[in-house]
Write a protein that binds this DNA or RNA. Structure first.
Lengths: 244, 244
DNA sequence: CGATTGCTTGAATCTATTCAAGCACTGTGG
DNA sequence: CCACAGTGCTTGAATAGATTCAAGCAATCG
């Protein structure tokens, strides 16, 4: 039996909700043995049925939708501790693709036992609902980002959100974080061309707000970046209310 | 006691899930007496706590986020039969505003009795989860729309989605629908300027695909519009799988 | 070692925004 | 009852901004 204490998912839920060790152990029992996925080997494909849900244990993946003309929109990047493919399970069929960015380790969630567990541990059910609501809040924020912020603000907001998420699982700080994303990936996430992503990154670097180079994001001036991007992290780390 | 048979919410759920009349009656018992809201009187404000959730019985509203510089992004329009403010309840505090576009009638959902009901009628719980997943799928599609489609395709896709949603509740068809949205509202939803919305609408009209005039959307050539917008409605009317 | 991918930069083009102005309609207060 | 302000729709002209095209460089991988 695996323990999930001291894993990213435990860190995340503890930071936001404060589940007991016992409850975390129960959650751990819903996880099948972990599986490794290599780059180039997709987890979920658009249109697939009978899909499983996962928790990401290590590595980064991205969820995206692809269009007829070949362009794609990355909906979100998932980092350790995040759920994968929950909507695909509810919908029975996946409306998006999930692709690993780095080597990845996932645990499959045992759906059949989920409902029983929820009956016995309602706080866990609420924790799941809270986590899903948080995911939706991130998509909404992403929408605002693309719809109403200019490219530089958009990039700044994106880097800050990622930094805040990584901080919760101990993989980032107000100084910066290690980041495996490429400029083409950023372009597909932010609705820009890869060339323009490059220019925007240079811009942020030249004004001394943030530097992204060699797989490292450095916040050169965190407070100024927050002000510039109009960033408010409360949707990321706010405790759920029905859990008090 | 109100009945919710023959209301938009019943039409929507019946089209997609097939709840029994009995189950719909149970759902109806979760609804407090309906309330009317005038234009200019907001339902939910960003940052408010202890918010309630509603079902929209008649009229249109929009959910939006507002930024420091005054620009806003409309996340979605809600039409009769849609849920309002569910995420605000789960998060205890609202991260967005909800504003009526027309005169509106809402029913408040009695949250305390919700959990009991779910224990006795698990199909209803799944129906709610399905509806919430559908909402999230719409936000994701909206994201793709703004991120990776040009303004004309964006408008076309938006009108088609709205038409499909309205068809489910008997308020639209492949011919068109009545639509209370103004060009400034469309601009805030699609991430464009109001001026450009006007030009894009003219463009769609001139090539004979769709006409939006005097509060009426007319699909002049439905099939061509669908091809142009790369529109696939399966995320809107697909039956949930766990409900078979 | 050739092929692929990502990063970087410049120049030309295209596209959406902004600014400006006129028109129609609605509701308000003198 | 009418003048006026506010809002939405429409169009043209100027501007700002992102994309596309093109090219060179570095690193990685078969």
């Amino acid at each position: 039996m695996k323990t999930i204490l001291n894993t990213p998912i435990a860190l995340k839920l503890s930071a936001c909700i404060g589940l007991s060790e016992h409850e975390l152990e129960i959650l751990g029992q819903l996880l099948k043995q972990s599986r490794e996925i290599r780059v180039g080997q997709d987890l979920v494909q658009q249109g697939e049925t009978n899909q499983a849900a996962f928790i990401l244990m290590s590595g980064w993946v991205c969820s995206y939708k692809i269009q007829a003309d070949g362009t794609r929109q990355i909906v979100d990047f998932q980092i350790p501790g995040d759920f994968l493919g929950v909507r695909s399970v509810l919908f029975h069929t996946s409306d998006h693709n999930i692709e690993p960015i780095t080597e990845v380790e996932v645990c499959e969630i045992l759906i059949p036992r989920l409902l029983d567990t929820f009956a016995q541990h309602p706080r866990l059910a609420m924790a799941l609902l809270w986590a899903l609501s948080r995911d939706e809040a991130m998509v909404v924020e992403h929408l605002v980002n693309i719809g109403r912020r200019n490219p530089a603000e958009r990039m700044a907001h994106f880097l800050l959100e990622l930094g805040a998420r990584l901080s919760l699982i101990g993989a980032g700080s107000k100084t910066g974080f290690t980041c495996p994303l490429t400029q083409p990936l950023l372009a597909d996430a932010l609705g820009l061309s890869a060339v323009h992503v490059n220019r925007v990154l240079r811009q942020l670097r030249e004004v001394g707000m943030a530097t992204f180079r060699d797989g490292q994001v450095v916040f050169d001036n965190y407070d100024r970046l927050v002000a510039f991007a109009d960033f408010d992290s409360s949707y990321l780390d706010q405790a759920g209310p029905l859990l008090t």
